[in-house]
C-alpha cells in the first residue's frame, strides 16, 4: 500500500492500466493515461474494498487529477478532472521542456 499523500499538487501521474475483477472507481477512459495532480481531497475509504464489504477497507488519499482532452481522446482543447484513489496512480515522468 502506498504511503499517505504520495503525490503533490502539480505532479504528473499515470493511472494504472490494470482492469480489476471487482468494483473500482477508476473510470476506464482514464486508465493508462497521464494527468497532473490538482489537489489532495484528504483520505477516504477505498471504494474497491468497501464494495466487497471488507470490515476494514483501506483508507487512502484521493486526488483530483486533470487530464488534457488531447491525452484522453487525441483531440479537443478542454480538460477533464477525475477523482482517483492513490492506489490507482503511479508516478509519471515529467514532460521534457
Amino acid at each position: 500500500m502506498p504511503e499517505p499523500a504520495a503525490f503533490a499538487a502539480g505532479q504528473r501521474v499515470r493511472v494504472r492500466a490494470a482492469d480489476p475483477d471487482g468494483h473500482t472507481r477508476a473510470p476506464r477512459y482514464v486508465r493508462g493515461h497521464t494527468g497532473r495532480v490538482v489537489e489532495s481531497q484528504g483520505r477516504w475509504p477505498l471504494a474497491d474494498d468497501r464494495a466487497t464489504g471488507a470490515a476494514e477497507p483501506r483508507v487512502e488519499t484521493v486526488y483530483t487529477v486533470a487530464f488534457p482532452a488531447r491525452e484522453l481522446w487525441g483531440e479537443g482543447t478542454h480538460e477533464v478532472t477525475v477523482d482517483l484513489w492513490e492506489s490507482y496512480l503511479e508516478q509519471a515522468a515529467e514532460e521534457r521542456a
Binding site: W44, V80, D83, W85
Partner: peptide, 8 residues
C-alpha cells in the same frame, strides 16, 4: 473544464 465526480 469537465469535473467527473468519481469518488467521494
Amino acid at each position: 473544464t469537465v469535473w467527473d465526480s468519481s469518488a467521494e
